[in-house]
Write a protein that binds this DNA or RNA. Structure first.
Lengths: 334, 334
DNA sequence: GAGTAAAATGTAAACGCTTACATAGCTTAA
DNA sequence: TTAAGCTATGTAAGCGTTTACATTTTACTC
């Protein structure tokens, strides 16, 4: 049977209020009394019950994360960033995975209510309306990479279009004109914007895009492999590939190498995300860098601010800049 | 202001007990009353307060995970496995990172008390005694890859020694006799066992191990690179390298390739873990496979059982078998 | 040594729910 | 008709804290 504050109070010969004060440093308790209480607590192996405390204070000291998926380094990096920031304020992290399904995200959001003080929601697949309809009204929320409808909510989005445009431009500067793209899922907001950046760059270079050179993937290595497989059968192969994320780029590379195609000499390739592994594969992957970890930190930062200043918190929409990092996979010359 | 059960009860003209019953299907409520309550709840945007419910039922419907770190795919895979299993029973996942520090793991364990119904602890760096002293007594706990002292606790451990031995044997069968090892941290239980497996295999082959061919790393790519750098300066280089995890193996490969060393022709290499990326790098990495995801699922399974059958739960110690998967990095011949 | 202000501690209500037990309203059977 | 037995709902205690407010103790001052 677990000891309660009452047991400690009795054992130490004080009231429960005093015990509570000791455990909250809320007001001064005479040193001697304090020690007596601490001793009693120790002997009884007492630890405050967080649930009761939460009920009383209306604070849970937890924040929730609703993620679309739990696969791969991207998510673990975000989690790491968020955890890193909130741990400094003794907050806890409750993670939930919506598996990208509408009803599950609804369920996740639902069960988070009353369990957390704030929410970080990442849901690049859900449209803004559905999202808004399900978002709790009374809880601070930070949107990560979601379709945002207006400025009524805090949101952090990556400059997907800008990053894609920059890296495709880089490819163009290398003289490539037949550039293929491995897209992400059609309903994913990241994919959409990356694709737009891609198109934009081509337009600016006055290149007419060949839709044969498009493949829609799902952000997995396998998708990258399939895309390449398809293009290898073309009479007129692309000379460069832009993969909408590093994972697919890596899949593409593996398929190219299996077919004895030299990278970057015969086909250049670039990715997006700069996941840790990108700099260790061969050839090292040219890609677009976003600091996922720091994105998590920032999201946590904003959320904590919203929680602590519920009255005068100004919502903000941040666009996280990206940076291309040139390595070997697209040719170093130039 | 958020609506409470009381508001709903008033609006529907019933007592709070009836409202509670509706939201718990605990006993039959006449259909008409039920609809009236549901309607009132909807209008007030009422959702039960989980904290209050938990206090009353002494159940949180959450389980906690204490992880040593949040870096890399290994952890996200475990999390994914656990989440996958517990979600089916509407449990939530509270994640906490101990950063491998003794006091932090203590703090993490401490704050989990009363917040979760059960705990999955992964802490390969902490010795059994310290761990045991800090583990909550009253809470079901499943140990993941920890030093286990006795059979009083549920535990899942990977057959690290067996896996390492098997893969080193494989290397030996290829004719290698100068096999180097990139170890993990000295106080890490996984590293220790993998190293033991390595030694065992060499002994069985009656090979005297050259301590020049040992490098202690920290499971990062960088460590793999450093190890190789060091060995390249040797007059008598190793012909094969066993890295204690895939990440270090990948780092090693990148360094070898930068120095123009052919893999596996000049130096063969093998890893441990079989992280997803291993099959997509070039050359594809020969490694030891453990299903991290399913380890998470199993841990969750055992924990849930312990929670639901607190009286007659038999603790169990599972050793998850490993399997070597031969790919290109150690030479396909044979 | 009385009076007073400040410091330390105690009392009890509240947080929002669940649930054992009590009660009221109906059926049913003798 | 009435007692008994159900069924649907209500009453109220309890879950373990926090905290405003009340009370007691201590420390000074004159």
């Amino acid at each position: 049977m677990k000891a309660t504050i009452k047991d400690v109070a009795e054992k130490a010969g004080v009231s429960i209020a005093t015990v509570s004060r000791v455990f909250n440093n809320s007001s001064v308790v005479v040193e001697e009394t304090k020690q007596r209480i601490l001793l009693a607590a120790e002997e009884l192996r007492y630890a405050p019950n967080h649930v009761a405390r939460s009920l009383s204070t209306r604070k849970t000291e937890s924040i929730g994360m609703v993620l679309p998926d739990l696969h791969g380094e991207f998510f673990s990096e975000v989690i790491r960033g968020v955890d890193e920031r909130i741990q400094t304020e003794n907050y806890h992290l409750v993670v939930s995975c919506s598996h990208n399904k509408k009803n599950e995200i609804q369920a996740a959001l639902q069960t988070m209510r009353g369990r957390v003080d704030g929410l970080i929601v990442m849901s690049p697949h859900i449209d803004a309306k559905t999202l808004n309809a399900n978002l709790p009204f009374s809880l601070p929320v930070v949107l990560l990479n979601c379709s945002v409808e207006d400025s009524s909510r805090d949101a952090i989005t990556i400059d997907n279009a800008g990053g894609a445009r920059a890296i495709v431009k880089h490819l163009l500067q290398h003289g490539h004109t037949r550039i293929a793209i491995i897209k992400g899922p059609d309903n994913n907001i990241d994919s959409i914007h990356r694709y737009q950046g891609f198109q934009r760059a081509l337009e600016e270079a006055k290149i007419i895009h060949d839709t044969d050179l498009e493949f829609t993937g799902d952000f997995t290595e396998e998708a990258g492999r399939k895309a390449v497989k398809q293009w290898l059968m073309l009479k007129n192969r692309p000379t460069a590939i832009f993969a909408s994320n590093d994972t697919m780029a890596i899949g593409a590379i593996s398929m190219l190498q299996e077919n004895g195609i030299l990278i970057p000499d015969e086909i250049a390739i670039a990715g997006f995300d700069d996941i840790p592994i990108s700099r260790y594969i061969h050839p090292k992957l040219t890609t677009v860098q976003i600091s996922i970890n720091s994105m998590g930190i920032q999201a946590a930062e904003i959320l904590l601010h919203a929680i602590h200043n519920s009255e005068n918190h100004q919502t903000q929409q941040k666009i996280v800049p990206t940076q291309i990092v040139v390595r070997e996979s697209c040719g170093k010359h130039l």
